[in-house]
Every structure is written in structure tokens, then in C-alpha cells.
């Protein structure tokens, strides 16, 4: 398990070990993990820290629409929301807009010259059950259309039947296909069964070149949970400790309230430190979350609880 560390003590690491550290192989104790994650929910964020946290959360949001019913007009509307989350309020823009490949061009056009990136799910999303060739061409097409970030799914088909090297090779291939775009690798943690496997999948994704590891597609029953986020953040922390390379974490699916978002920020903060409180290291994949973040921000500023219609939703 500590082969890498042991070898570090004895001899200079080989290049391969440096770049491809073996999975430490350590188990994750579910009870301890969940308890630690839950304990951070009681961190109290008051006044200016809360305002700052809400702004950070907005800045880390990947405003997402992944519906069959998405149209260019819907995406343009989302992009405008991304640039100014609430009309008239001095809020930062979100990190990215996340759409299907067919709508990348629309998003790119709308967000041109803005700090908001265009992200696209592009790998036979959400199941990944397409031939690799098609998934790779999906990726390339999204990049060519101008996507800055590509969210790909790992093959649970390969992972669950134990073909881990295939998972790793595919992620590496996605990374190559993504070219200069950031690669976010979705583990679909709700389908992996245990935290041990989530940790392993996360490690494999990091090793294969992921820029972000992401919890979920939002299309299955179990999405991001605080414990899952903590588990993946700990892998990101350990991976950085081993290799020096920082990998981001994206939580997605089911995060709807500012309180939840702040809970995730506390987990992020206490696991990776304040240096990770940036959209380069953490993202929320969400749609309705933004409404509540804006509402709570305004409540902080005005001291009044907001009515649902105070913040226009998209």
C-alpha cells in the first residue's frame, strides 16, 4: 500500500511512479467518513463570512441544463443568468454553463469574451454505454464546438466488472481527446456501491489525467452526498500529496439549498484548506441551487428573509 512512500525513502522514484502512483489501497470507513462529513454541517458561518461563502458558491457553480427539451433559447437564457445570477445584485458570475454537445455552439456564442466557461457532457452521457470510438468523437466534437470543459463519464460497465485498467485507459483517451479543454471525470458514485470503490475510481481518474473528479451525472437515484464529497476530496488531497498535482472536485445532483452548498464548502475548506476555495478546485453542478444562493445572499445584505419570487428563476 505504501509502496510509493516506501520507495521514496529508499531510492528516487522512477518517473512512472511519480506520474502514476499506485492506488494506496486503503479502505474507507463509511461510518467514520459520514460522521466527519456530517460534523462539518454544524460549522457556523455568520455575517461577512456567510456572504463571502455564498459568493464563492455562486462562483463555483456550473449552471447546468441537461434535458432532452433543451433548446438554444433555453441555453441563451441560462447563459445570461450565468453572467448575472440576479438582476441588479452585485453578484459574481458562475463558473460555467454546462450543456449537451448540440448546444455548445449556442453557449459559446452567448458567453464569448466573458469569464464564464462553456462545459459540455460528452462521452455517451449519462450511461457511457456506447463504443469508445463514439464516446471519443462525442468529446472531440464538443471541443471543436468550443467547449472549455468536458464532463465525461467513466465506464461503469468496465469498472464494475473489474476492468480497472480499461477505465484508466479510457479516461486517458478522453484526456487526449479533450486537448486543451479541462477534463471533468464523472464517477457516478451512486452506482459504485461503496466508498472503497469510489476512492479507487477517484484515484484512477486522477492518475489518468482528470482535472476534476465529479460525483454524478444527476441522472441516477443517488447523487452527491457530503460523505462522497469528503471521500473524493480526501483522494484529491492524497493524490496531490503523492504527485504534487492538484485535482478539483465537482459535486453534482440534488444540491438545491444554500445551506447544503455551505456544508460542502466547509468540507472543502477543512479538507483542502482555504487555498481550495476557488472554482479552479471545486464546482457545484446545479440548476436551482443558484436561486437559493441569491436569495440567501440578499437576506444577508438586507436582513430580511426573501420570498421565492424575489429572485427570478430561469
Amino acid at each position: 500500500m505504501s509502496a510509493t512512500r516506501a520507495s521514496k525513502n529508499v531510492a528516487p522514484p522512477s518517473l512512472e511512479e511519480e506520474v502514476f502512483p499506485p492506488f494506496p489501497g486503503r479502505g474507507v470507513d463509511q461510518v467514520g467518513l459520514e460522521e466527519r462529513a456530517a460534523s462539518l454541517r454544524t460549522r457556523s458561518w455568520k455575517r461577512e463570512t456567510k456572504t463571502a461563502a455564498l459568493e464563492r458558491a455562486i462562483s463555483m457553480t456550473d449552471l447546468t441544463t441537461l434535458e432532452g427539451a433543451d433548446t438554444p433559447e433555453r441555453v441563451r437564457r441560462l447563459c445570461r443568468r450565468a453572467l448575472g445570477p440576479a438582476p441588479g445584485l452585485p453578484l459574481p458570475p458562475v463558473a460555467a454553463v454546462c450543456v449537451y454537445p448540440a448546444l455548445v455552439e449556442t453557449a459559446v456564442a452567448t458567453l464569448q469574451g466573458s469569464p464564464v466557461a462553456v462545459a459540455s457532457v460528452a462521452s455517451g452521457f449519462p450511461s457511457g454505454q456506447l463504443p469508445l470510438r463514439i464516446r471519443l468523437s462525442d468529446t472531440r466534437a464538443a471541443v471543436e464546438a468550443g467547449a472549455d470543459e468536458i464532463d465525461v463519464v467513466i465506464s461503469r460497465n468496465a469498472f464494475l466488472r473489474g476492468d480497472l485498467s480499461r477505465v484508466e485507459d479510457e479516461v486517458a483517451a478522453f484526456k487526449e481527446a479533450a486537448g486543451g479543454a479541462q477534463l471533468k471525470v464523472i464517477l457516478e458514485t451512486g452506482e459504485l456501491g461503496t466508498f472503497d470503490r469510489i476512492a479507487r475510481a477517484a484515484w484512477i481518474a486522477c492518475r489518468a489525467g482528470a482535472d476534476f473528479i465529479k460525483t454524478s451525472t444527476g441522472k441516477v437515484r443517488i447523487n452527491a452526498t457530503p460523505a462522497t464529497a469528503l471521500c473524493m476530496l480526501e483522494i484529491a488531497r492524497d493524490f496531490e500529496r503523492e504527485t504534487g498535482r492538484a485535482v478539483g472536485v465537482k459535486v453534482a445532483g440534488g444540491i438545491r439549498t444554500a445551506r447544503d452548498a455551505i456544508h460542502y464548502l466547509a468540507i472543502l475548506h477543512e479538507t483542502l484548506g482555504p487555498g481550495a476555495l476557488t472554482n479552479r478546485r471545486f464546482r457545484f453542478g446545479a440548476s436551482s441551487l443558484l436561486d437559493d444562493l441569491c436569495r440567501q445572499w440578499r437576506k444577508q445584505k438586507t436582513g430580511r428573509y426573501q420570498a421565492p419570487e424575489d429572485i427570478p428563476s430561469d
Partner: peptide, 27 residues
């Protein structure tokens, strides 16, 4: 993960792209 290697080299940096130096919880 530097901006230079990504597609958004052309984009202006996000206003909150830099992390805070510290993030103390208010009392």
C-alpha cells in the same frame, strides 16, 4: 490546471478565480 492550457485562455479571468488567503469563520 493553469488557464494557459485550457480553452479559456481567451476569456477574462473569473473575478473569484483566486482563492482567499484565509477564510476564518466569523465569531
Amino acid at each position: 490546471m493553469t488557464d494557459s492550457k485550457t480553452g479559456y485562455a481567451s476569456r477574462p479571468p473569473h473575478p473569484l478565480a483566486e482563492p482567499p488567503e484565509s477564510f476564518p469563520y466569523a465569531p
